[in-house]
């Protein structure tokens, strides 16, 4: 594990903690896309099936368990919690997320490293994660005035992706036979989706203004 990978994982962890803080403590999920959260729950559920089949490290196992638990907890809060579900912007969060799932699955059936059950699901989770942020970005664009916690949440998610790219570059130069085209390309696509958001986030931060996205 290198410093970039650790920084990426910690950004990811921190982004989820911010979201849990908002939902659990403030009892609000305003500006948060349930569609994106459901996609993340599906991403983790299909990717971390290997929790039962292979052991990498205690760190990996604990992180996987946290990501699984937190993603389903957030979906539960937004759907069923008496107070939280009332703050959900249902009418604005209209992205047809089901239309992302089928193409990602077909792509995973066609483009993968090995045609095994776990490997195809792992690949599917990579493709789906790459586009899972789309409903959230669309919702931010629609609400325009983004509250601080939601803005920071998306920023740290994007930071996590950026650190992973640095991690891959580092590993490519320091390890032998380290190349993972599928992971890299889906990771690059995913990070590129944040570029526009990053621009406005940094701009609002430098001017110490509230984050506002253009219409």
């Amino acid at each position: 594990m290198n410093i970039f990978r650790l920084a990426g994982d910690m950004s990811h962890l921190f982004s989820i903690l911010l979201l849990l803080l908002k939902i659990h403590t403030i009892k609000s999920c305003a500006g948060v896309s349930l569609k994106t959260q459901e996609l993340y729950a599906l991403v983790f559920a299909t990717r971390y099936l290997d929790i039962f089949t292979g052991y990498i490290s205690l760190y990996n196992t604990l992180m996987k368990m946290f990501f699984l638990w937190s993603s389903f907890t957030i979906v539960w809060y937004m759907r069923y919690h008496n107070v939280v579900r009332r703050s959900y912007d249902k009418d604005q969060d209209t992205f047809r997320h089901y239309f992302l799932i089928l193409p990602c699955f077909i792509l995973a059936l066609l483009v993968h490293e090995k045609f095994t059950f776990l490997e195809v699901l792992w690949t599917f989770s990579l493709y789906l994660e790459a586009v899972a942020i789309l409903p959230q970005l669309v919702l931010l664009q629609r609400t325009r005035n983004v509250d601080n916690l939601t803005g920071h949440y998306v920023f740290f998610l994007g930071a996590y992706r950026s650190f992973y790219i640095l991690n891959w570059i580092y590993r490519y130069f320091t390890e032998q036979n380290y190349y993972k085209w599928i992971t890299w390309i889906s990771g690059l696509v995913q990070t590129a989706l944040y570029a526009d958001f990053f621009y406005y986030y940094v701009k609002s931060w430098r001017n110490s203004e509230r984050l506002q996205l253009p219409a």
Partner: peptide, 10 residues
Amino acid sequence: QKSEEKHDEL
């Protein structure tokens, strides 16, 4: 030790 067999990233 080869890294391509197992997925060691999250």
